[in-house]
Design a protein around this nucleic acid. Structure first.
Length: 485
RNA sequence: GGCUCGGUGGUCAAGCGGCUAAGACACCGCCCUUUCACGGCGGUAACACGGGUUCGAUUCCCGUCCGAGUCACCA
């Protein structure tokens, strides 16, 4: 109850933001903010071989778009910097050496080749390191070191006993120490491994809640042993259930490329709104007591509770995401919707000058993904070559014969209009239907078909004529009439 | 394979010893309607299995089965 809550998001700059990662970031943010704490961004780039150019910018951009604003980080600083592990490189070795002094770690001079053969020899999986260097005489170690022989530093796991730790979502977990590998702490290149750097950084940065995917559950005892060796307080562990994808054969596995878009950027590219993505993944593994579904990031902060996190893995459901996206799209002011849709409008409409607000207003209620837009409106740009059978519709009571009449009458009536807008067109057509003593659909159907050339359109006949303008409308209606005669 | 974790409809999930086992997505039907959609109403569909504990188990314990994660000089 004493310490101020601090969580950290510690991604590796791999070049894209997996939704599982993003969800971890989200929960870290929510835990910190819901408890009045601090959210820290730390870049874990200890793997020099996997460095990707521009990857850090992707992290910043994603966090910004997702509205997960960090309080400390490489770009804004803070009192626990530096926040990039490669810039902290010199920090780790002394801790590892201290562990060696305490006999909790040791130098290992085994070559890559020896390790490889070790893995190959053991036919059953799980051979691991044979602890070859665990008890090298001190003189040998010093001699090797003096000769500049490459080395790693390994953690010296207890051979007996067991280690128990507590997790906020999974509860108490006990593992036999004999199961634990003498994992590497410092690599040959001098960089710490992820596991080691994590412990050192989390402690020196005063992190109170270690939040991460449940794939780390089995390595957590090793962390505990490290904390205990140093005599440090053990943080609160919060392991999150994994996000899975459904395979074609019905099995499930960790969400990956073959399941569809898995990165935040890809999702956005596919026409999903950042808010919708965040809202959806927030509910993947967490549930409020009242089972509400629509949450802004601020509302999530208000309602988030760690005990609402579930243990079982969940499958990423693109259908449900799409539903969320539709809800968010519908909730947008039409001007805003028009603005974010503009790139998609332009993709379909290259020459015509349309009233974008009107286009947006007929699209907004029926769009669940922005990428659906172009195909829905391309008929405004150019009419597709349609079959005259489209004029036949049972429900509207239209056929090839009466469509001719409807079109003729419609053209005459519309032609007489001096003002061309939604209301005048609407009143004109509705009035005409009454006058002809036919149901609205019987008149509207052929007109909509002639105007669009499509059986399914966003908006009805009136909206389409309005957007098309009088001149283009009349041309299309005449063409439709010609097609029928 | 060892170890660890998990198992409520197709999916996300509520439930935390007693309920006709919620809700949402998807699917189906009806209504609304100038198409589609939106919206409204309704429907199909679940406690993996076997033992205990208990007056009573979806809920607690054990076993089985199934699934996942992990066993790297990757994070």
């Amino acid at each position: 109850m004493s310490k101020k809550v601090r969580t950290r998001f510690a991604p590796s700059p791999t070049g894209f933001m997996h939704v599982g990662n993003l969800r971890t970031a989200l929960y870290e943010y929510l835990i910190a903010k819901s408890l009045g704490g601090t959210f820290v961004l730390r870049i874990e780039d200890t793997d020099q071989e996997r460095k990707v150019e521009g990857a850090v910018d992707i992290i910043y951009n994603t966090l910004r778009q997702a509205k997960l604003i960090h309080d400390e980080g490489p770009d804004i600083g803070g009192e626990y910097g530096p926040y990039v592990q490669s810039e902290r490189k010199d920090l780790y070795l002394p801790y590892a050496q201290k562990l060696v002094e305490m006999d909790k770690a040791y130098y290992c001079f085994c070559t890559k080749e020896r390790l490889d053969s070790l893995h190959n020899d053991s036919d059953d999986i799980g051979g691991g390191y044979d602890r070859h260097c665990r008890n090298l005489p001190k003189e040998v170690v010093e001699k090797n070191l003096a000769e500049g022989m490459p080395y790693v530093i390994r953690q010296k796991m207890p051979l007996e006993g067991s280690t128990t730790f507590n997790d906020a979502v999974f509860g108490s977990i006990t593992v036999e120490n004999s199961e634990l590998q003498d994992q590497i702490l410092i690599k040959t290149d001098g960089y710490p491994t992820y596991n080691f750097a994590n412990v050192i950084d989390d402690h020196t940065m005063n992190i109170t809640h270690v939040v991460r995917g449940s794939e780390y559950l089995s390595s957590t005892p090793k962390y505990n042993l490290l904390y205990e060796a140093f005599g440090w307080d053990i943080p609160e562990y919060v392991h999150l259930p994994l996000i899975m994808g459904k395979n074609d054969d019905g099995t499930v596995s960790k969400l990956s490329k073959r399941h569809g878009a898995t990165s935040f950027e890809d999702l956005v590219k596919q026409g999903f709104l950042p808010e919708a993505v965040i809202n959806y993944i927030a509910l993947l593994g967490w549930c409020p007591k009242d089972n509400r579904e629509i949450f802004s990031i601020e509302e999530l902060v208000e309602n988030f509770r760690i005990d609402g996190i579930s243990k079982s893995p969940s499958i990423f459901d693109y259908d449900k995401l799409e539903w969320f996206n539709g809800e968010y799209i519908k909730a947008l002011p039409v001007e805003k919707f028009a603005e974010i849709s503009m790139p998609y409008f332009k993709k379909a409409i290259k020459t015509k000058e349309l009233d974008w607000i009107k286009v947006a207003s007929i699209l907004q209620q029926r769009t669940t993904k922005l990428t659906q837009i172009p195909e829905k409106i391309e008929f405004f740009e150019a009419q597709p070559d349609y079959d005259k059978e489209l004029f036949v519709n049972k429900k509207s009571k239209t056929n090839l014969e009466n469509s001719v009449t409807m079109l003729k009458e419609g053209i005459n009536a519309l032609n007489a209009l001096t003002e061309w807008n939604h209301d005048t067109i609407h009143d004109c057509l509705i009035g005409l239907a009454q006058q002809l003593e036919v149901k609205n659909g019987t008149l509207m159907w052929p007109i909509r078909i002639a105007a669009s050339g499509m059986s399914v359109t966003p908006g009805g006949a009136v909206e389409i004529l309005d957007i098309l303008g009088k001149e283009e409308s009349m041309t299309r209606l005449q063409k439709g009439l010609a097609k029928l005669s």
